[in-house]
Design a protein around this nucleic acid. Structure first.
Length: 476
RNA sequence: CGGGACGUAGCGCAGUCUGGCUAGCGCACCUGAAUGGGGUUCAGGGGGUCGGUGGUUCAAAUCCACUCGUCCCGACCA
C-alpha cells in the first residue's frame, strides 16, 4: 500500500531523504553538495523568514545587504576566525578572463566584510548601536553534505551588531537567543535547550557562543541557531573604535547570530512520520487543503461550488487551497498532501454537499472529524491550534524520554552507543576531558544550559569537581 | 581525505561472474475509455550514445586499463 518512503526504524537517513523527495522540498543539484530548494521548500523558508524578520524588526534591527565576495586578506585579520573558516572557503582566482590581483573569498559568513564597513561608519558613541541583519546565501566547502542539514551553499540570516559596551552586546546576544528559542518552540513546535557552547564548540572568533539545541527522532542533537558574543575581537582586527562620552577612544563590542535553512531539516526530523512530512500549522504555507470528491459527472459542479464556498469561508488568515485536479483520484491526492505535511485536509463529496457538512482529517493523528458548514472556520482554527500544541508536546515527550541524568561513565557510553538522546552529566570544564569523551563515545557537549540548577558534582570522566550538568549527545 | 558500495529509460532495479538474437522489468510519463469517500482499472503507446575514454575480440552493458561521478560509514562543520 505505502510506497516511496522508507520507515524511520528501518533506515532513518533514507527516511529523511525520502521525506524531502516526497514533499518535493528540494532536489540534488549538479554540483556536489548543492541543492535546489523547490517551491514547497522555498515557501516554507519564506514563512520562516517572515516570522523571524518580524521579530528582528520588533527588536530594532534593520536589514541590509553586504557583498558575496570578500578580499581574502580580510579573512586573515582575525586569527581564530581564519583558522576556523579558511579550510572551507571557496576562492575566486579569476575574473574577466584574467587572474585577480587579490583573490576573493566567497563569504562563509560576513563578519569580516561587515566590520570593514563598520570601521567607516562608527566614529562616536552616537553612532551606536548598529543593529543590522542580512538575509543571504553563504558557502562552506563541506566534506559530507546532507540536504538542508549541511549543504555547500545554504541560505540564512546573519545579524551583526555593534555596541558601546560589553554589557549591551551581551544583552543583545541573549535577546536574539530568546528570539530563536521562541521561533523554535512557538512556531516550529520544536522544544530546545538554550545554552552556551564549550570553548571547543564555539564559533571561530567568538568570545562565547550561545545555542539552541534540539533532539531529533533518531536520538541525535541538532544545533538549530547560534548567537555569538564577539567581544572586541573583530573591532581589534579591523580597528573599529569610537569616542565615548568622556572623549576617549574605545574598541567597539560586537555580536553576530544566525539561523539557516537547516531549520527545515530540524522540522522534518522532529515532526515527520512514516507517511512523510508534518508541518506545524503556524509555519505551513498551506494549512488546509480541500479535496473535492466526485461521483461520475452528476453533481460535479455542485461539489466544486460547495468547496469554493467552504474555502472562501476560511478567509485570508488561514492559508488554504483547493485541489480540484481531475486527473488524480481522491486517494492519490490524500497521499500526496499527506507527504507534503499539510496539517488539515478537508474532504468534500456529494454526501457532504447534501448534508451541509465536510470531513476534516488531521495530518498528525489521522483523526477524521465531521463538521457543519457554519462551524467550519472555527473548528479549523481550533484544530490548527490543537495540532500546533500537540506537535510541540509530542516532541517534548520524546525529548524527555530520551534525556538521561547520568553520573557513571559506563552508563554514559552505553546510552550514547545504544539509544542516543541527551545525556546530562557533570563536566569539569577541561577541554581534554571533552576531547576524550568525544573520542571514546562520539558524543560532544551540545551546550551548557542557561538553567543549570546549580548542582555540584564530579566530572563524569575524570571525577574532578564540577558545577552544573551539561548536555552531551551525538550530533548532526 | 581514509574505508565500503555503486553508475543500464525520469526514478528503482535485473542482465555482467560464464561476451553472442531486436537490452529487459516495476514505477513514472503519453493516448483513450470507464472510475472517483485512502496511492482506480483496462487497452494501447513513447522513451536507452548501458557514466566517459581507450584497449582485447568476428562480436562488449558484459573482459582489461584509465578516468569521471554518486551514495553510505569515519575525521571537520550552521
Amino acid at each position: 500500500m505505502k510506497k516511496g518512503i522508507t520507515r524511520r526504524d528501518e533506515d532513518f537517513s533514507r527516511w529523511y531523504t525520502d521525506v524531502i523527495a516526497g514533499a518535493r522540498l528540494a532536489d540534488y543539484a549538479p554540483v556536489k553538495g548543492c541543492m535546489v530548494i523547490r517551491p514547497n521548500g522555498y515557501a516554507l523558508w519564506e514563512r520562516m523568514q517572515s516570522c523571524l524578520d518580524r521579530m528582528f524588526k520588533e527588536t530594532g534591527h534593520e536589514n541590509a545587504y553586504f557583498p558575496l565576495l570578500i578580499p581574502e586578506s580580510f579573512l586573515h585579520k582575525e586569527a581564530e576566525h581564519v583558522e576556523g573558516f579558511a579550510p572551507e572557503c571557496a576562492v575566486v582566482t579569476h575574473g574577466g578572463g584574467k587572474q585577480l590581483e587579490e583573490r576573493l573569498v566567497i563569504r562563509p559568513t560576513s563578519e569580516t566584510i561587515i566590520w570593514a564597513m563598520y570601521k567607516k561608519w562608527i566614529m562616536s558613541y552616537r553612532d551606536l548601536p548598529i543593529l543590522i541583519n542580512q538575509w543571504c546565501n553563504v558557502l562552506r566547502w563541506e566534506l559530507r553534505t546532507r540536504l538542508f542539514l549541511r549543504t555547500t551553499e545554504f541560505l540564512w540570516q546573519e545579524g551583526h551588531t555593534a555596541h558601546a559596551s560589553a554589557g549591551e552586546a551581551e544583552e543583545e546576544t541573549l535577546r536574539i537567543l530568546d528570539i530563536y528559542r521562541t521561533f523554535a518552540e512557538d512556531y516550529s513546535a520544536i522544544p530546545v535547550v538554550p545554552g552556551r557552547k564549550s570553548e571547543r564548540e564555539k564559533f571561530a572568533g567568538a568570545v562565547h557562543t550561545y545555542t539552541i539545541e534540539a533532539l531529533m527522532q533518531d536520538g541525535k542533537a541538532l544545533q538549530a541557531g547560534t548567537s555569538h558574543f564577539l567581544g572586541q575581537n573583530f573591532a581589534k582586527a579591523f580597528d573599529v573604535t569610537f569616542q565615548n562620552r568622556q572623549g576617549e577612544q574605545e574598541l567597539v563590542w560586537a555580536t553576530s547570530w544566525g539561523m539557516s535553512t537547516r531549520m527545515i531539516g530540524a522540522l522534518i526530523m522532529t515532526h515527520g512520520d512514516d507517511q512523510g512530512l508534518i508541518l506545524p500549522p503556524r509555519l505551513a504555507p498551506t494549512a488546509v487543503v480541500f479535496i473535492p470528491i466526485f461521483k461520475g459527472q452528476t453533481g460535479h459542479a455542485e461539489v466544486l461550488q460547495y468547496v469554493a464556498q467552504l474555502a472562501a469561508s476560511l478567509g485570508k488568515e488561514i492559508p488554504h487551497r483547493v485541489d480540484a485536479r481531475e486527473e488524480y483520484t481522491p486517494g492519490w491526492k490524500f497521499n500526496e498532501w499527506e507527504r507534503a505535511g499539510v496539517p488539515i485536509r478537508v474532504e468534500v463529496g456529494p454526501r457532504d454537499v447534501q448534508r451541509g457538512e465536510a470531513v476534516l482529517v488531521r495530518r498528525d493523528t489521522g483523526e477524521k472529524i465531521t463538521v457543519s458548514e457554519e462551524g467550519l472556520k472555527d473548528r479549523v482554527a481550533e484544530l490548527l491550534d490543537d495540532i500546533q500544541r500537540s506537535l510541540y508536546e509530542r516532541a517534548g515527550r520524546f525529548r524527555e524520554e530520551h534525556s538521561h541524568v547520568v553520573d557513571d561513565y559506563e552508563v554514559f557510553k552505553e546510552l550514547i552507543a545504544d539509544e542516543g538522546g541527551f545525556v546530562r552529566s557533570f563536566w569539569c570544564g577541561a577541554g581534554v576531558c571533552e576531547d576524550q569523551i568525544k573520542q571514546e563515545t562520539m558524543a560532544t557537549i551540545r551546550c551548557i544550559p542557561l538553567e543549570d540548577g546549580g548542582e555540584e558534582g564530579r566530572c563524569v570522566r575524570c571525577n574532578k569537581k564540577a558545577h552544573g550538568r551539561v548536555y552531551f549527545a551525538k550530533a548532526y
